[in-house]
Computed example of a mutant assay.
Amino acid sequence: MKPITLLMVLMSASLMSTENQAKPALDSLTGPYLGQKKPGGVPQIFAPGAVSSKHRDYNAFFSPDMTEFYFTRRDNDTGNWTLMSYVQQNNQWHEQVVGPRVGRPFLAPDGKTMHLGKYYMERTACGWGSLQVLGSMFDRNDWGIMRLTSSSKGTYILDDYKSGDIIRISEVVNGQRQPPVALGPEINTGKYNAHPFIAPDDSYIIWDGQREEGYGDSDLYISFRKKDGSWGKAINLGPQVNTSGREASASVSPDGKYLFFNRNVASTEGDIYWVDAQVIEQLRPDQK
């Protein structure tokens, strides 16, 4: 494990010291999914006025037990990015400032590891531990990892903005972590590909990218894994999800019911949306 800089230490200290600085619960934020009315097949803004605010709110995900909700926020006044959370206590959701944003955070399916690009933190009895580097195969100066997500099998999917905006995969074979390799042209096609999410069962990946046949600035795409382990051709998630604006940073709730993503159009700074995950199942190829 590589030593981390003083800046990283300070960030870790801030993460641990601020996690428990909870704000009072809002009466309306009670019950599952922060008490929000569940969407159908048309994407809706998630928790307007609480999660989706006047600021730039991005990168949403739940903990595996669905009692913690995380997202990042860019303050319009200061320009600073913060990792935020809502924690459910006695059926009410309480807002917390976790600390400065590092990378594009994502919680592993085991609920014990927070990925932050090439860094990670482990959950402790007192909150989140110190910031650590994943390892030398991920800590390369010629790579630029914004988002890394993992499956229950330990598969990592990560982007790389320094190497032509591509997506890489790192699998575990016979208990050994394999070096990340670039995915094929089924995925890495177009102007750029970034911010990938991998399903807990390794059955698909979702990411955002720009292609000539897209609907706008960037669209969300999905690739399903075939029986032979290869990845299928990228499928655009369609006009219900993608618009002339920018869609990005998707994730699926741990219960598999809802797709969360960001949408940025000319009239907004960027909000978090959610939609019934049937938009995914309708695209899944029949592999019988």
Score class of each variant (00 low, 15 high):
15 L>F: 13
258 Y>T: 01
160 D>A: 06
173 V>E: 06
94 H>D: 06
59 N>M: 07
265 V>G: 08
281 E>I: 09
261 F>N: 01
258 Y>F: 05
34 L>V: 07
78 T>I: 07
58 Y>K: 04
243 T>I: 01
150 S>I: 06
70 Y>H: 14
39 P>F: 07
178 Q>L: 04
223 S>D: 04
117 G>M: 12
2 K>L: 13
194 A>E: 10
239 P>G: 08
41 G>E: 14
270 G>R: 02
49 G>Q: 08
124 T>F: 05
133 V>R: 15
22 A>E: 13
142 D>E: 15
55 H>C: 09
91 N>E: 12
287 Q>I: 03
149 T>Y: 07
261 F>C: 02
164 G>H: 06
210 Q>E: 14
229 G>S: 08
85 S>K: 06
20 N>Q: 12
254 P>F: 03
50 A>E: 15
259 L>I: 04
59 N>Y: 10
287 Q>F: 01
215 Y>A: 03
111 G>I: 07
184 G>V: 01
95 E>K: 12
137 M>K: 14
134 L>M: 11
21 Q>Y: 13
45 I>Y: 14
57 D>K: 08
61 F>R: 06
286 D>L: 00
76 N>P: 12
239 P>K: 03
87 V>G: 03
15 L>T: 11
192 Y>C: 00
71 F>P: 03
73 R>H: 05
19 E>M: 10
121 M>N: 13
274 W>C: 00
79 G>M: 05
182 A>S: 05
238 G>I: 02
225 R>I: 05
247 E>D: 02
